[in-house]
Computed example of a mutant assay.
Amino acid sequence: MKGSTLKHGISLRTLIRKSADLSGPCLLVVGDRQGAVFGGLLECPLKPTPKRKYQGTNQTFVFTTIYGEPRLFRPTGANRYYYMCLNDLLAFGGGGNFALCLDGDLLSGTSGACDTFGNLCLAHNEDFELKNVELWGFSHVSQHLT
């Protein structure tokens, strides 16, 4: 694990800075105050863009634990809106809503159904307060991710 709001304070800029030590696929794991755990796979290091420009590949996915068991939502092929990283916003998916969107202070976020992943809301509510944010890197990349 590289970055955690419990250890490193709360800011997307801090998370972006900590992601520089990671390379390849990373798992963003977030939680809401009702106990949901959700997030998505993205590429590290995180590279914020000045404009709303999507990044990622069809390996990107989002997940949640609120439907009784972990649910993974992979790209549907509807678009290529995998994820977007700005200095004050990190968002997965597009078309309808963001599957997951975190604000720059990592205090709150939104989640809704989106065309990119064909997902349901990942959190207990579409607007939520974040309890924790972690970014996990992998030291051995599985052959299934290539």
Score class of each variant (00 low, 15 high):
residue 4 S to V: 03
residue 81 Y to I: 00
residue 9 G to T: 03
residue 69 E to K: 15
residue 110 T to K: 13
residue 77 G to V: 09
residue 89 L to W: 07
residue 3 G to E: 02
residue 93 G to W: 03
residue 129 E to S: 15
residue 66 I to R: 15
residue 95 G to P: 04
residue 47 K to I: 09
residue 84 M to G: 02
residue 17 R to V: 03
residue 35 G to R: 07
residue 9 G to K: 04
residue 143 Q to V: 04
residue 87 N to E: 12
residue 141 V to R: 04
residue 41 L to S: 05
residue 12 L to D: 05
residue 68 G to F: 09
residue 18 K to L: 11
residue 118 G to N: 13
residue 24 G to K: 06
residue 38 F to R: 01
residue 47 K to A: 11
residue 72 L to W: 11
residue 117 F to R: 08
residue 141 V to L: 04
residue 88 D to A: 09
residue 70 P to N: 05
residue 51 K to A: 14
residue 35 G to S: 07
residue 66 I to N: 09
residue 92 F to Q: 06
residue 52 R to V: 06
residue 77 G to K: 10
residue 97 N to D: 15
residue 92 F to A: 06
residue 143 Q to L: 11
residue 25 P to S: 09
residue 31 G to W: 00
residue 63 F to I: 04
residue 67 Y to M: 10
residue 3 G to L: 13
residue 33 R to W: 01
residue 52 R to G: 15
residue 33 R to I: 13
residue 16 I to S: 04
residue 21 D to M: 04
residue 111 S to T: 14
residue 35 G to I: 05
residue 108 S to L: 00
residue 122 L to N: 09
residue 23 S to R: 10
residue 96 G to P: 06
residue 122 L to Y: 12
residue 108 S to E: 11
residue 62 V to L: 08
residue 29 V to R: 09
residue 9 G to I: 05
residue 101 C to M: 13
residue 47 K to G: 02
residue 31 G to F: 02
residue 32 D to W: 02
residue 68 G to V: 10
residue 10 I to V: 06
residue 56 G to H: 08
residue 115 D to S: 15
residue 72 L to N: 05
residue 133 V to W: 04
residue 143 Q to A: 13
residue 98 F to M: 07
residue 67 Y to F: 15
residue 59 Q to N: 14
residue 82 Y to D: 03
residue 108 S to C: 11
